[in-house]
Amino acid sequence: MRYGSYGAGIMVLAIMTAVGLFLAIRGAQAIRVAGGDFLTEQAWEPNSGRFGIAAVLFGTVMIAVIAIAVALPLALGTATYISEYAPTGIKPFLVGVVDLMAAIPSVVYGLWGMYWLEGNLLPVAEWISTHFGWIPIFRVSRFDPQDPLATPTVFTASAFLAGLVVAMMVAPIACSVMREVFAQAPVGEREGALALGASKWGMIRSVVYPFGRGGIIGGAMLGLGRALGETIAVYLVISPVFVINWEILSTGTNSVSSLIALHYGEASNFELSGLMAAGLVLFAVTMAVNFGAGIIIQRSRSGASS
């Protein structure tokens, strides 16, 4: 018995280390050739020796940041609603619905983004870029608001769209962590605040949010980790480019995982190591984010296990 479970532990450890080591060894081969350029080069032409992940990594981070910027307020609001405002009768139902949302396959979100959101988002993107174009990231240089014949197609398949789709996927994950932490805020402190004359919002702001700060940050970072690694939903909605595109509303972005999904098929042996190296960097980033989230959640006063 003891040896059986020891064996299982060793085996799981072996599998996991094998994956990590294999990635590292195969990836190192490509990184050795590319050297320091691997992190700064934007193009992806491994067979001619010019390749790097600057553009794809930038796209990945950009999509994830947009996703978290949208998902964080939604998740925070929904978690606060479920924990503080919702009638007792529908609370379990709402908890179930949010957990269910986290379980919907990513390809379904991809379909939704591709066929529903993209068409509905075009006028919004156009509106934002027309009226807020003076903010650098909302500028779309290929779109001239004065030109009545300007086509809105420059707004399709943007990082903004991909970020919104991913936001819908990560909001439930962040929300359930936050809700659990909020529910643990001590009753005595809540009622103390109310007894001192705080309004409901005053109580939430001075008791629930400070108590749950670790959960808020940790939940958002868990969502970020998921957003960084998302493949299929992003792959379906973006049109890949290999340049750093700061204009989040305009067509063209990329991500590490869609790079892998796009190129693995016709990859030469060496390009495959390049893809592994890209995957390795992505893995390192997600792992750092996840561990950071775990530490923040554990160190916080609520100490919720995620």
Partner: peptide, 24 residues
């Protein structure tokens, strides 16, 4: 040690699982 490694592997992006099996 095993627990730490397992926790780290929950961060493994799913496409990399596919890439690993494809390559091996």
């Amino acid at each position: 040690v095993v627990r730490t490694v397992v926790e780290a592997m929950t961060a493994l992006p799913s496409i990399i699982c596919g890439l690993f099996i494809y390559a091996t």
